[in-house]
Nucleic acid binder design. Structure first.
Lengths: 148, 148
DNA sequence: ATACAACATTTGTATATACAAATATAATAG
DNA sequence: CTATTATATTTGTATATACAAATGTTGTAT
């Protein structure tokens, strides 16, 4: 992915700026590819993220703020995101009996099944997108990113 | 920026997945910081990007498809983005006399002045965000990103 | 010249996101 | 026990984005 080609510029970019733009371009591309991989399942990347977090709870329900904490892209609007998943029958929401301010969200059977299918698509996408790197390079990249 | 802390997980992530998430987290952070830097000028990152592209034209007007080609995040909706900039008095739009399908967009004096002020804010943000890297590391990072 | 395809932009519409304010519940201080 | 503050979620609203269809213009083949 060449920066200058992507944004069709001829003038050279300062290194710091080029790096930021590079990160953004790569990220846009990764996002697009993953959204595409999820298209057949009619869920957004954010919705997929929530489903995966719920599975990580291993049966223990999550409340909204837990979801928000664990999401890759935090958003103010997790309520409405969960609304969508409920409408699709993938999750359930009940008010928490111990603390009626909170809410308990959990995967349905259908949610768990759908998620398994999505996993296969996403694992393939991951492999396709990151397959260009050796393990050593992945570690190197992660180390660099840790510094930000 | 530690991935596991950001998404508050204890279970270890496969390296490829971790890298993708890492890139997304870094990108979210970079975006937030740059949006913040632009807040005082009341323009979005996309709008700033268009202004900078227009300056790169060195007086030669740009049409919509040129803008779209050169934007970091391409969008279907450059028309409305330009509408906003016109409303702020930062750019002008005329239909191109040689080809009346096309449109000629150029910076106004006010646009050029505002852009200079934004530059200072954005240069500072760039330095702050990328200051954690040496030149060698920046090159290394760029080389890795080129592979995607 | 006329019809048809290609091009450049604009518009419509549905969905997504950001941010602030509102609601409901629980915890705490007096 | 009441008022106040803090917590958790929901709602309102404005703005942004994605995608498809519509509009207006130009180029081309007959």
């Amino acid at each position: 992915m060449n920066v200058e080609d992507c944004i069709m510029t001829d003038q050279p970019l300062p290194l710091q700026r080029r790096t930021i733009i590079h990160l953004m371009l790569v990220n846009n591309y990764l996002g697009e590819q993953m959204v595409q991989a999820l298209k057949p399942f009619e869920v957004s990347l954010q919705q997929f993220n929530v489903l995966r977090i719920l599975r990580g709870q291993k049966g223990k329900p999550a409340n909204l703020s837990t979801l928000n904490d664990r999401m890759v892209s935090k958003m103010s609007n997790t309520t409405r995101l969960v609304d969508k998943l409920i409408a699709k029958g993938l999750v359930l929401r009940n008010t928490c009996p111990e603390n009626r301010r909170k809410v308990e969200i959990r995967l349905t059977g259908k949610g768990m099944e759908s998620l398994k299918a999505m996993d296969r698509a996403m694992d393939a996408a991951e492999k396709k997108l990151m397959g260009c790197f050796t393990d050593h390079e992945l570690k190197q990249l992660n180390n660099l990113l840790d510094r930000v």
